[in-house]
Design a protein around this nucleic acid. Structure first.
Lengths: 341, 341
DNA sequence: AACGTTCCCGCAAACGTTTGCATAGTTTTT
DNA sequence: AAAAACTATGCAAACGTTTGCGGGAACGTT
């Protein structure tokens, strides 16, 4: 404890009277080394509490065992569950994780990507910033280091991408509403044609179609920022219509909660008059009254599989880059906002 | 783009016909180098897009420019705001951040600490796992690398610690209740004498004392895990008393929300009959009806200051380790659960 | 004119590890 | 018994950077 010096290969070699290279190879289970030597080396290394200098190692081998993660916002609740999955899975395979935020800023996103590569990350996990339009720079990075996209992805970037099966999730949600006898189902979506919004909208349309319910333009409301306040605002719009909807499918829990709050304000019965379903299964979904039926997204699992794929690609690099999408199934959590028990 | 080779100091030196060491010094603004040379070097470096090999650098200087962060749980909402502060501040000073979870497990916590040090983190930011009892190993790590504790801290560990001024926050919260004319104020706290719980309890007691309100043992309820469900349970206990409290101070938003839910269930008027205040200003505080008065903890600021202190200590190491606590002020957000507007 | 300073710069070692190549000793093949 | 092949090990270079030391040139001081 007192002598604060670090044990190196050279030291081990001296103590054992063998060369540094033999020690190195023994520690790395190189086939050339005899079992007895391997044993002696490992035993001493253990005893002396040898820890390899990862910098010398990384410097030499150009491998760092670091995974870079770039997300728009670390404090987004769904993101954190994904992060948890990433951290866990990475740890299992002996990787460290460095995390940074793009803050939904495209230039910052590229910057982070660059510094992470410069820093020597063995691979990158990224969830794209909103409105990521110029993918050129990202593409040029791609040939330097394996990249796996998750959650917010883009088919303009040829790499493996892990997403929630948004379309089916939305389909199931709407199907659930239809099963309750609802027919005038409004949707609260995003104006920006983000990947997620588009997919959920597609699921909505497919469910209606499958039940021969005509699409009504008036019931399709869009907003720039699909937040709680805008959920309120759009619900007010819906309530001002002569023929009100009998259900609302909000693309986001926040918007759904906004909807519930304004419905409550006007004492409209949920779900009898208007049922509501959200998307995310956020913590607030059980806080609001009535509690919110919503799509549960297995963020942790998403994080895990994204990491698994990335590590696989790091360990045996693939030659031809091609978009490969893995979809993770969700399930609908039914609560009071659609079900009177 | 095509030639995928990395520019090194040697290359620059060759192109400029000067030695490698001069190039290195020029890039690092060493005073020995003439301004003209510095300019030439920097110009070329820029042109050739030179990026230093951080591994060679870290290997040589033993500095990695990495900060390690260890928290019990990344997906805890308050934690994420702290993380945001850390990430931002670290980036400003050119540090990368690696994050991992202790999952409130003491052995895992030590493990993570070790690997981070082994990995070469220049400093560590840590929020302690619950019931961290044996601090010996942590202490022995301490002399290897600067450590700053935040949020969950312990005075058994001599280092700088950044916390919310819990005591004052609680004092203000209770003072607020007293200001409304409340006198029988119950507190929902933790059984485990965690730092946070103790401090908040102390603030509670001080406020009562300052107003000459005698402490009533019956109104002090403790639970192992201060969660939403337990908030409900304890509130039921309170309601079963012959002389009910006229206010509840819950040490946690979750517990406060549980309290509100059971009060609502029994149609007890909030705040007229019983007022409620929580602690954290979580997202759910505005979702519940009535909205919850709660203590806002400036997590981002806490993260920033913790990082600032750590970096300061990295850059000029302090000799004598001593516990030094920095407290960050909070403010009370008054909402409907204590105020009838 | 001799000396002391100051200013720039280069040489070379060092950090801890990996790895191609050489080599000594041993076993197998011819 | 000589040649070939294999086994286990060592030598030394290499990775890219920083830095102590030394020294030549230019300048200023007597």
């Amino acid at each position: 404890m007192a002598k604060n010096h670090t044990v190196t290969l050279k030291e081990l070699s001296k103590k054992l009277n063998i060369s540094v290279s033999t020690v190195s190879r023994a520690l790395n289970d190189h086939p050339d080394i005899s079992p007895i030597t391997v044993d002696r080396v490992k035993r001493l290394a253990n005893e002396l509490n040898y820890v390899p200098n990862l910098f010398a190692k990384g410097f030499r081998t150009k491998k760092t065992n670091i995974l870079g993660v770039i997300v728009p916002n670390v404090s987004h609740i769904y993101t954190t569950t994904i992060l948890k999955g990433i951290l866990d899975e990475a740890e299992l395979s002996g990787y460290r994780v460095i995390i940074s935020e793009s803050k939904n800023d495209e230039t910052k996103q590229v910057e982070m990507l660059q510094t992470m590569i410069q820093f020597g990350a063995d691979g990158i996990l990224m969830s794209l910033a909103k409105k990521t339009s110029s993918v050129n720079k990202i593409l040029s990075m791609l040939q330097r280091v394996p990249l796996v996209l998750f959650d917010k992805v883009s088919d303009k970037i040829p790499c493996t991408q892990i997403v929630i099966d948004e379309e089916e999730a939305a389909y199931n949600a709407v199907q659930h509403l239809i099963g309750l006898g609802k027919e005038r189902i409004a949707i609260l979506k995003e104006t920006e044609n983000s990947y997620n919004s588009e997919k959920r909208f597609a699921g909505y349309k497919r469910a209606l179609e499958a039940n021969n319910i005509p699409l009504k333009e008036k019931l399709i409301l869009s907003t720039e920022d699909i937040s709680l306040i805008n959920g309120k605002r759009l619900t007010n719009v819906l309530l001002s219509m002569k023929k009100r909807p009998d259900a609302i499918f909000a693309i986001t829990d926040n918007a759904a909660i906004g909807a519930i709050q304004t419905l409550n304000k006007f004492s409209i019965k949920i779900p009898e008059e208007i049922a509501v379903v959200g998307f995310s299964n956020s913590a607030s979904a059980t806080i609001i009254t009535p509690s919110l039926t919503t799509v549960d997204q297995p963020g942790e699992r998403l994080g895990r599989t994204a990491t698994t794929y990335l590590i696989k690609e790091i360990q045996n690099p693939i030659e031809d880059l091609v978009t490969k999408t893995i979809e993770i199934k969700t399930n609908l959590v039914v609560r009071a906002s659609t079900f009177k028990g």
